[in-house]
Every structure is written in structure tokens, then in C-alpha cells.
Amino acid sequence: MKLLKSLGATALMLSASFSAQTTWADKLVISNWDGYMPADMVERFKKETGIDAEVALHATNEEIMGKVVASKGKGYDVLFVSSPFVEVLNKLDLIAKLDHKLIPNTKNLYSQANELNYDKGNKVSMPYAWGTTGLCYRADLMDEPTSWNDLLKPNDALKGKVTMLSTDRWLMAAGFLSLGYSVNSTNPSEIAEAKQVLKSAKKSILAYDDATFYAKLVSGEATMTHAWDGWCNYGTAENPNIKYVIPKEGTDMYVDSMVITKNSKMKKEAHAFINYVLSKEIGVWIVNNVMYKTPNEAAMSSIDPAMMKAYPNLAMSPDEILKQEQLRDLGKTQKAYTKAVTEILASN
């Protein structure tokens, strides 16, 4: 019995000491994808503003959504998520309205970045990076692809050497686009058609890959991959023969945004962080470091032309990007997408 009592006491003490450690620290917590900002950016932010901050990492939008929905966002202050998820977090009332007075650097944004349809006027989110989804390929091993069908129905030489994104929205988008439908389609027969196309495409796919496709291009495991433009640049950096192209049918545009959780206890500091990211100087540093386009006009206009030449998709203008359709949350139709994707991934 004594043993049990002391055991219980120890457990409580340990718990208490840990929680003390975590509540005591008044730190701004920022969750982002691994490698999606310069590694020492938060350190620099701390030094320059005197605000204590730390970074949490999430591997996917889905992961951070699961955690934020279950925990009501407690503990997190700033989140980086893609645009459809901004819409959901807002509808679920988990993110705060932004106070633009605290973010004077919004003046650095392109005017178009204020008119994004998932959050007009950037009421609850600030765009961090944007771009398009397309094909990333080895120009030394194949001719330039022109159509989504080059990916979905590859010629014999490419069979088993292409990869596709596995995240449900982007996987379905490839199917919809090849058929000329909207990437936000809620029409059951269109969903069924896209599913059929993607099912037959599966036979010639090496793997579904959201994160290491560029490494597969570099090593030669794959010749063409379904990719986000910024991430394709990681491949180009290692092998200049790796190029990016948007298929002639068009594509979607993505926006990765910053939001502040409603439960944040450090909203002022969170605004200061967003403002910091949107400054011209930091904006330039981000583009040079992560090789993604940002909606920061002041920063984009001061990027070294040699950089733009080495990574041509960085030079894409806001109008070119905005020509593409933006992903929206699907509401109830999400169920149908998930089921279609399950069916595709489970088919032989």
C-alpha cells in the first residue's frame, strides 16, 4: 500500500513539475511545415522583437487540422495552413479576426492578394506563399509534357516512372482538370468520372508522393511528378534539367496562409510575427531560402534576376497565378471525395 501511495504521489509530482514547465513559458507557438521557412527565422524574430517564440512542426494540413480541432487550438498561436483549411477553421470558429492596424506590412502585398476568394479582404488570414500545381519533370529524359493526360496516361517509356500527389484535393484535381471540370466540383457524376480516370492512371504510377517527389527525380527513380511549383525548385537546385510546367488544361492555385487561433493568449505578439514575415527584408530572405513565390510584392520585386532565371516559375506574375482556380472547402461533399480517393488508392 505504501508503495502505491508513494507511486501516486510521484506521478502527481512529476505531472505537476512538467505542467509547471510548460505553462510557465510564455512563448508564442508557431506551427509550420518542416523547412517551409528559413531555419533561423524565429531566432531572428526573437532577437529583433524581444518576443519569445518557438516552432512546432506539422507534416500535413490534415495533421494540424486534427490537432487543432480536437484541442480547440489551445497552445498554438500562429498556424500555417492551406487556403481550404482557412475556410474550415473560420467556419468552425477556431481562428481570430485579424487586426490590420497591427499588421502595417500588409501594404507590401500585391493588391490581388487582398481579393482571394476564400477570405476576401484577408479578414482572418494572411497569405504567406502561393503558386500553382503542375508537372515537374526531367527535361533530359523526356519531351516537355503538355497535358494532364501525359501524367494520367503516360506513354510506355514513362510507365512506372511517374508519381502523383496523394492528398485528396490535389489528387482529385488532376482527374477533374484532365476532363475539363472544376477542381471544386460537387457534381456526383463528375466525381465518379474523375475517379475512373484516376483509377486507371494508378496502373502506371510508381508511387503517390507528397513530399519526396523531387528527390525521386534527382535520383532517377521517377521521370515526371505531379508537384507544387515551389517544391519542384528543390529538384532544380540539384539538377538544372528538372523543370516545371503547367498543363494546357490549366490547374489550381494554392495559397498557404497564416492564421491566429481564437484561443491564443498572445494575439498581439502573433500579429507582430505576421507583420514581421510580411516585411520586405524578411520576405526576400524567405523567397531565397524556401524558393516559393510569395504574395509580397515588395520582396518579389527585389529578388535577384539570376534567381528568377534559375527557377523560372518564381517569375510567374500574380495575374498568371490568379488565372487558375482556387481550391475551396467542399462542405458535405468532402465525404464523397474521401470515398473516391479511398477507392482509387485501394484499387488494384
Binding site: Q21, T22, V55, A56, L57, K67, A70, K74, G75
Partner: peptide
């Protein structure tokens, strides 16, 4: 990952 507190103070090696 899910039961950890937010932030690097409770990140564990397998998550990394």
C-alpha cells in the same frame, strides 16, 4: 504528436 503540448518543448524524436 496529438497529446503533446504545442511547441518544441514537447516534440519527441520519432516526430522529428
Amino acid at each position: 504528436f496529438f497529446t503533446a503540448g504545442a511547441g518544441s518543448s514537447s516534440t519527441t524524436l520519432p516526430m522529428q
